[in-house]
Simulated scan of single mutants.
Amino acid sequence: MTAAPHDVPALAARTALTLPYTHVDDIFVDGAWIPARGTGRNPVTDPATGEVWGSVPDGTLDDVDAAVAAARTAFDAARGRGWSRPSGPPICCASPRKSRSAPRNCR
C-alpha cells in the first residue's frame, strides 16, 4: 500500500524517524519478553502512510491465555492498593441522546 499525495508530509516525517525495532520476535507477557508460540508474522502498518514498516509474531490462544492470566494476577495483587471507585456523582450525568444542552452535574 502506498501513500496518497495528501500523505506526503506524513511520509516525510516517517522517513525521518529511526526505528530501533522493525521486526520483533518475542511478545511481552508478565514483565518479560518471551517467544511467541505461533509461527506466523503480522505486518505493522503506519496508519498515516499506509506503509508496512515492520512485523510482529503471530500469537496463539495459549499466548493470549498466558497474557490474560498474568494480567489477572497483577490486578488481583493490586487489589486494595489504590483501586477504588471515585466518590460523588458520575463524571457526566447527561446522555447526549437525551439532551443536546450542556451536561449537568459534571466534574
Rank of each mutant, 00 (worst) to 15 (best):
M1C: 06
T2I: 08
A3P: 01
A3L: 08
A4G: 11
A4H: 15
P5H: 02
H6K: 08
D7M: 07
V8F: 05
A10S: 09
A10P: 01
A10I: 06
L11Y: 05
L11E: 00
A12G: 08
T15G: 07
L17H: 04
T18D: 11
T18C: 14
L19H: 08
P20S: 12
Y21Q: 15
Y21V: 15
T22V: 04
H23F: 10
H23M: 08
H23W: 05
H23R: 15
V24H: 15
D25A: 10
D26R: 11
I27P: 01
F28Q: 01
D30G: 14
D30V: 08
A32R: 15
A32L: 07
P35K: 06
P35L: 11
A36L: 11
G38H: 12
T39Q: 14
T39A: 07
T39I: 12
R41E: 04
R41P: 02
R41T: 11
N42D: 02
N42W: 13
P43C: 03
P43E: 10
V44S: 02
T45A: 03
P47A: 09
P47T: 07
P47Y: 10
G50H: 01
E51R: 06
E51G: 03
E51L: 04
V52D: 04
G54E: 05
D58S: 12
G59D: 04
T60N: 06
L61W: 14
L61Q: 10
D62A: 14
D62V: 05
D65V: 09
A66S: 15
A66T: 05
A67Q: 02
A67C: 05
A67G: 06
V68F: 10
A70I: 03
A70L: 06
A71Y: 03
T73F: 15
A74M: 01
A77I: 01
A77C: 06
A78S: 15
R79N: 11
R81W: 04
G82V: 00
G82Y: 07
W83H: 07
W83K: 07
W83M: 15
R85K: 13
P86F: 05
P89Q: 04
P89I: 03
P89H: 02
I91Y: 06
I91W: 10
C93F: 14
S95F: 00
R100D: 13
R100K: 15
S101K: 10
N105H: 11
N105W: 12
C106P: 03
C106G: 10
R107A: 08
R107C: 13
